[in-house]
Design a protein around this nucleic acid. Structure first.
Lengths: 199, 199, 199, 199
DNA sequence: AATGAATGAGCCTTCATTCAT
DNA sequence: GATGAATGAAGGCTCATTCAT
């Protein structure tokens, strides 16, 4: 019977809680198995309140993806202030740095990552972009020819790398089984091992 | 008004068409976005006919997963008749053979693979099993120590390999952009490159 | 694939089995919870065979009611060959005889009775008719005034008697807990006790 | 097109109307022939509104049974404040009182009674309980031996009484053909006539 | 006489979304 | 800012019944 604004309520706070619960539920149960009723129940508000802050279920999910993507890109692009060497070594060093940044971000946002990097439709795009960024990096360091010793096409190699990253993220990072730095190092070892050794 | 049997109807055929359309739709649109009404429309039968052959939408999806899994496992286990060498080289040779079989199966069943290896809940289990099988193979060939030169834990290496496989399958095999043999070779090159060269 | 007439099949036999299974199922589970698929499964024939012998589920149910009713009425009307006395005593003696006949029939057809006397829509009519028959009997024996000592309206008394019969049939006859003769006697005792004693 | 809340809508009222219409329809047409669409049509709401207040059709039906049973039991147990005599006379007096209470309740809730006492599966239990309560009453008044003059087993006598009650309720009470007090008196007369007279 | 195969019609239920307060 | 109450639009599934063989 009692309607209207809740005692002690606050708009931004409600939205924040809704977002948090949505991330948790979408991540744990997936988009289709998460009902809006679940989210609002978890956030302890009513359904119309949900629509006060989000246009639709789909829009919210999209928001979360955008949120993930911007964090992800930011982590990827955050320039390390150190001077970057050129050549393969410079590339590998920078890549490890970037992987580290990425993995830190992921470790700090595992549920959001599950949504934006693993489960959502848009995750395909993110992974494609990641691939392209890495390839871009290779060209920037002018070391595409150095990679020919791998005897497979560079594109395939990077696709492979990205696939490998995805799985290792799922198994080790989202489950908190490895530290970001360790995993970044492992991946670099795996893919650029000979490099490190010989140089 | 006209009820009952169609002119040239045949049970097995109807079931077959339903299966094919289901694979196509589940693969293209995903489980939740594929309605039974879509499937039966595509198969040109009515909804009750669907339930003549499948217990429920869920049961059908599960059937498809089982079907994929058994084909997948069969491909993985099909023994090549050649004598298998021991040691790393033997392992790598056999692994390439198995990847080839797998990739042939996948190329022949791209949509089913998308369902059973990429999209479904059960795909996690399949990938875990694949990982374990490869590790098992390593021990069988008694070459786990040979892999220590990779300077990363073997488990991580194989996890990485499986992740890589998944992504390359999506990009190159499901899209028919590469031949099974070529992709198998590429992966072997990527992960066991030094081996090949030095031996 | 093999269609057409079953080896050793026989029309009347199929119909008989269907009837038996239908009685059993309708009686045990009720009209709505008994599916035609249940009946034909129990009878080990296919659904179209059912429609070979019965126009519809409803028609079959109605047939069973008719069958019950005719057996019931026959039992009720079967004239005992003994000469019937007039007056209350004659009435009571005859009523007991009739109850006995009825109860024998019911004991021999418990499942059909459950359908036709307890569960079906038509059972109301049967009970009303039973009531009227008994009242008719009273007038025939010209003993309606004798019953005024009961200090309740005769109609109510007979309604009560019929209700009592129904419940005792359910509890004692359908469950085979009492013999027809015993139950008939009990009921007579209960309702015409004083009579018996004083006359 | 117009969704959302109605002008003068009120939750409790909607639920109440739904309950009333459900009682009416279940009572008139039976469980299986009453569709949820019928109920909501009668209540002038849409189907989802139904599920706002009831978990399922079955759950609602069960609720109605519970509602009937508790009213029924309450009526049966409501202690008359008068001092109760011991012996047969006390028992008969109390029983009549209780029948009266019961019949008043039934007269006030004829449709609910039809559901809970006549049609539903659970009605069997209710009648069994009623029988046991009456038998309990007999023992309480220590007059089981007094009833041996009836020359039939007491259990059968009470079963008969309950059957009689059921039928008389259907014919006279649900159809509003008799007043509660009159029917209670009639039944007492019928079953304990001699008692009344001789004492 | 009997069957394999199929269907029309409908029922229960769920879910995202929206009004009126 | 927030809610109680309600709804449009499906979706999965079942069942009696019928056709062609």
């Amino acid at each position: 019977m009692a309607r209207g604004r809740k005692f002690n309520s606050n708009g931004e706070r409600s939205k924040q809680i809704l977002l948090e619960k949505a991330i948790e539920l979408f991540s744990d149960k997936g988009y289709y198995q998460t009902k809006i009723s679940d989210i609002v129940k978890a956030a302890n508000v009513t359904q119309p309140t949900f629509y006060l802050y989000f246009k639709s279920k789909d829009a919210l999910y999209n928001d979360l993806n955008i949120q993930f993507q911007s964090g992800f890109l930011e982590a990827l692009e955050s320039q390390s202030t150190e001077i970057v060497e050129n050549g393969l070594k410079g590339f590998v060093t920078l890549l490890e740095q970037k992987l580290l940044n990425l993995f830190v971000y992921i470790t700090e946002n595992p549920k959001l990552t599950k949504i934006g990097f693993i489960e959502s439709e848009q995750s395909h795009i993110v992974k494609t972009q990641l691939t392209q960024q890495i390839i871009h990096l290779i060209y920037l360091h002018d070391c595409d020819k150095d990679l020919q010793m791998y005897s497979v096409d560079m594109k395939i190699m990077i696709d492979s790398l990205v696939g490998s990253m995805e799985r290792l993220i799922i198994i080790y990072l989202l489950e908190q089984k490895k530290l970001p730095a360790d995993l970044a190092n492992d991946i670099i070892q795996l893919y650029f091992w000979k490099t490190k050794e010989t140089i």
